[in-house]
């Protein structure tokens, strides 16, 4: 399984994500710089990490979404390649138009940094196949702009097409329909606010995130 992690100026979860991918796949991911317009051939997964790309200037993820590397990410996704956006990576994917909706300031205006419980709404995806449908899992969140909003038609379509991957068990940040993670129509692109890479080994106190990476490995190995 050949993976890559994109590094933007201001990414700060790229190392953790690389460690998680190395741990589970046994192969170190390639680091892609935001200014790269060419990416290595044969990548199975391109992952966009959390952080504060370009200082969250203008809107979270807005500048990163227009980086040269994002054209390659979009091409990869269009070909059916897997794309995973975590936290700021999710914001980048919505800003790039690869996922619908937008991530706005948390309803309570606070930066939220804690464990949350999530429902696995859709287990029938390469990202969530390691979980049972309807299973409750725990992952940490750490974000200021995690309040997912889209118009009612888009939200209905996400529900009807089974594209809500994860839902908060309680209202965390004001997200419409408590959405924590969504898929594109082809189900090969996932964006989520919680951090699976922060819960992959026993020393983290929780390993619920590990099954997301193991699920990918099972599909791609």
């Amino acid at each position: 399984m050949k993976t890559a992690v994109v590094v933007f100026p201001g990414s700060n979860c790229d190392r953790d994500l690389m460690v998680a991918l190395s741990l589970v796949t046994g192969v170190a991911p390639v680091a892609l710089w935001h200014a790269d317009s060419d990416v290595p051939a044969g990548l199975d997964l391109i992952a966009l990490p959390g952080g504060f790309s370009h200082g969250d200037y203008l809107r979270s993820g807005a500048i990163a979404a227009r980086a040269p590397v994002m054209r390659a990410v979009a091409d990869h996704g269009r070909r059916g390649g897997l794309v995973l956006g975590i936290c700021n990576g999710f914001q980048v994917l919505t800003e790039a138009g690869l996922l619908p909706g937008a991530l706005m300031r948390n309803a309570g205006l606070d930066f939220i940094c804690r464990d949350v419980t999530l429902e696995v709404v859709t287990a029938d995806t390469p990202f969530t196949r390691g979980y049972a449908q309807g299973e409750t899992i725990t992952m940490p969140v750490a974000h200021h702009d995690g309040n997912f909003q889209a118009d009612a038609d888009t939200l209905d379509r996400l529900e009807q097409q089974g594209r809500i991957a994860l839902r908060y068990m309680e209202d965390v940040n004001g997200s419409a329909r408590r959405i924590a993670g969504i898929l594109n129509e082809g189900r090969n692109i996932l964006g989520l606010m919680p951090h699976p890479e922060r819960c992959v080994e026993p020393a983290h106190g929780n390993t619920d995130g590990r099954r997301l990476f193991e699920g990918l490995l099972a599909v791609l190995a």
Partner: peptide
């Protein structure tokens, strides 16, 4: 359209 505003919101 391309950058300064996000047409979604």
């Amino acid at each position: 359209r391309k950058l300064l505003a996000n047409p979604v919101i």
